[in-house]
């Protein structure tokens, strides 16, 4: 009897071990290291002192917190765009498409994931650059007189980012909408609701957990992305991850970089907390569910 219990416990530990190791070694330890590092101030070569100097520097230099706010607001914009474009797609896949075409459509949404981020960004570069497909097409139609550079501006960054993250909006939305009984939509109409009323009072409230889950994931991915803003926005993209990279690699200021990293984490967490409060949702019934 006792032995049986021990075996059960042992197997539980063994099953749990990879997950625990992953969390501890790759998430918790590095973050503790980052926190410690970010609280160090270099006062002389190889001499460090604990202080908040790195964080204070962030506050004193407007370029830093402006970049963070810019990254945050553009990420929110990308999230909103992904929701606006993704919701009708998800609704179509979950509710309108037949059972046979549903799988195919879902697969089509997944295909871009088979290609690396880098290749996808280069795809956009091919389209948008001065000698790219769009510019050449517009030249050919005569709408523009000389080649136009579509790359290296905010619009290019937002378009590229929306394209990259929209899938992570569609997947949770499809799974929530899929669980919705069609009779509920029909009841909404039957009781006298117009299409807009049904959408506003029944479909969206029902899909709220999926919407919030999708928004959290897309916001996090966008705010933390590096490759797409750099490649499509060039030097002007001013993405906060670029600042972190600069601190670590260009300026070799690991303490500053660690502080920036923690600030980005706090900032995005704060935005998500606000979002959850405003929508009346909890992490447990959104991200944890889908």
């Amino acid at each position: 009897m006792m032995q049986n219990k021990d075996i059960k416990r042992l197997s539980l530990y063994l099953l749990f071990a990879p997950f625990a190791l992953w969390i501890i070694l790759l998430v918790i330890l590095p973050h503790i290291g980052m926190v410690v590092l970010s609280l160090k101030e270099k006062i002389a070569p190889r001499v460090y002192e604990y202080s908040f100097a790195n964080y204070l520097e962030f506050l004193h230099e407007p370029i830093y917190w402006n970049t963070l706010l810019r990254t945050g607001s553009m990420s929110l914009l990308v999230t909103a765009l992904a929701l606006l474009i993704g919701f009708p797609i998800a609704y179509y896949i979950a509710k309108i498409a037949g059972p046979r075409s549903r799988g195919g459509l879902f697969l089509l949404c997944l295909i871009p994931l088979w290609v690396s981020d880098l290749i996808r960004a280069f795809g956009w570069i091919l389209l948008l650059r001065e000698t790219g497909v769009i510019s050449n097409f517009l030249l050919w139609t005569g709408l523009i007189g000389e080649p136009v550079e579509f790359l290296y501006n905010d619009v290019a960054v937002i378009v590229g980012l929306t394209y990259t993250v929209i899938l992570f909006m569609i997947v949770p939305l499809v799974s929530t909408l899929d669980g919705m009984d069609n009779a509920m939509i029909e009841a909404g109409y039957n009781l006298g609701g117009s299409g807009f009323t049904v959408l506003r009072r029944i479909i969206i409230p029902y899909a709220m957990p999926g919407i919030v889950a999708g928004c959290i994931v897309t916001f996090m991915l966008t705010a933390g992305s590096y490759l797409t803003p750099i490649l499509l926005g060039g030097k002007n993209s001013s993405w906060f991850t670029e600042q972190i990279y600069n601190q670590f690699i260009t300026r070799f200021n690991w303490e500053g970089g660690a502080a920036f990293g923690m600030l980005l984490l706090f900032f995005t967490s704060l935005v998500i907390w606000l979002g959850l409060k405003l929508s009346g949702q909890t992490l447990a019934n959104t991200v944890a569910k889908s």
Partner: peptide
Amino acid sequence: VKMVFQHLALFPMM
């Protein structure tokens, strides 16, 4: 014409 659905379809979020 109003309808009572098989699984009632009451709105769970209200």
